Amino acid sequence: METESGEHVEGFLAQTGEGSFHNVQLVGFGERREVFSRVKKELLSSVVASLQHRFQGVESHRVLLAASRLVDPREWPADQQELASYGSDHVNTVTEHFADVLDHMGCDRVKAKCIEWPSAKVIIKSLPQSLQQNAWQDFFVADDRRKTFCNLLLIVELILVMPLSTASVERGFSAMKRIKTDWRSNLSVNTLTQLLFISLEGLDLEDFNSMSVVDRWLKGLGVNTHTPFFPLTVLCDCVLRQMRSFLVSYY
């Protein structure tokens, strides 16, 4: 589009060739065609540069590159001597980048690098080629390996859940459009955040225990729900009065 105009621009230029557009005279447009072409080229160059910077390849991202080579056995060397020293720098890169998260999870980073990583490489590379790709899954399933490689598996799990696309962000925008409609435009930021969290991260209705929420709600109102023979009518009355108050204040 920098050298040739697109369909719509070409159509616009064709309709304004005589200095008018839909019978409206365009004063000085013919003299500004060069300015239009220059601005269009600058704009397109800026957009292309921004997109390239935003979606640059994994090869230019040090942490993503180290993470992908760490968990993919196809990237590991076949030679035993090369395999013995392979990956230590990748482990360092990933663990240093996620140091706060790993320390919070109780990961022994030194043990993961010096003890568990060399042993895991030997085990995975000794498997048939067809089984190596799903080897990490077996590490998570087997109880003995999950205990033996507990620190390394924290690192691997962190790598495997890293979002490599914007799908989760797009789902968030879709959920926000569903929740904050024209009729609910007065939702506060805090309420909208909580509703989005419930929609995106909450349990399914089949797994949701509503009674625990109602119990917590009533405790906030000062109602003792653990009193023996607590009447169900009182419970329903409290809930219905609170719902009515909410609906009146909302509408």
Rank of each mutant, 00 (worst) to 15 (best):
F197L: 01
L247C: 03
W76S: 06
S119A: 13
L192W: 06
V239H: 01
W117H: 13
N151R: 00
V248W: 08
D204W: 01
M243Q: 15
H104I: 04
G19C: 12
P118T: 13
H104L: 12
S174N: 11
Q194D: 15
Q25R: 10
L164V: 09
Y251K: 14
H8P: 02
L221F: 08
D108F: 01
S88E: 10
S68W: 07
L196P: 06
S174A: 15
E10V: 01
L195N: 02
F246Y: 15
A135K: 02
D237E: 06
S130A: 13
R38F: 03
S165K: 06
S119L: 15
K41F: 07
D182P: 01
E201Y: 12
D79G: 04
I159E: 10
L26V: 08
R241K: 14
A66W: 03
R171F: 04
F230R: 03
G87V: 00
S20C: 03
T233M: 07
N186S: 13
K113R: 15
S60H: 14
A66N: 01
H226G: 00
P77T: 07
E116R: 05
K113F: 02
R178D: 05
L235F: 00
E4S: 07
W136D: 02
P228W: 09
Y86E: 06
V94F: 00
F140C: 08
T3C: 01
D89F: 01
E206I: 15
L152N: 00
F208E: 09
A14I: 06
K111H: 11
K113V: 03
G11Q: 11
S68E: 07
S45H: 09
D143L: 10
R33Y: 00
S210R: 05
P163W: 08
A99M: 06
R69S: 08
G28A: 11
L235M: 11
L196E: 05
V141Q: 04
S37Y: 12
D72C: 15
H22N: 12
S168L: 14
R62T: 14
A167S: 13
S45F: 06
V189N: 00
R32A: 09
F29L: 14
F197R: 14
L232V: 09
L70Y: 03
L240W: 09
Q194F: 11
C107D: 03
H97M: 02
R216Q: 07
Q56L: 07
T93I: 12
V189S: 13
F246M: 07
V94N: 01
N151F: 00
L196A: 09
F173E: 02
F55K: 05
L235R: 05
N23E: 14
H226C: 10
H61C: 14
R32Y: 04
E2H: 02
Y250K: 11
G28F: 04
P77A: 07
Q194N: 12
P73F: 02
F55P: 09
R216N: 02
D144V: 15
T193E: 10
C114W: 03
E34K: 12
D215H: 09
F139S: 05
L187C: 00
S185H: 07
V223C: 03
F246W: 14
G220F: 11
F12K: 08
W136L: 09
R33V: 12
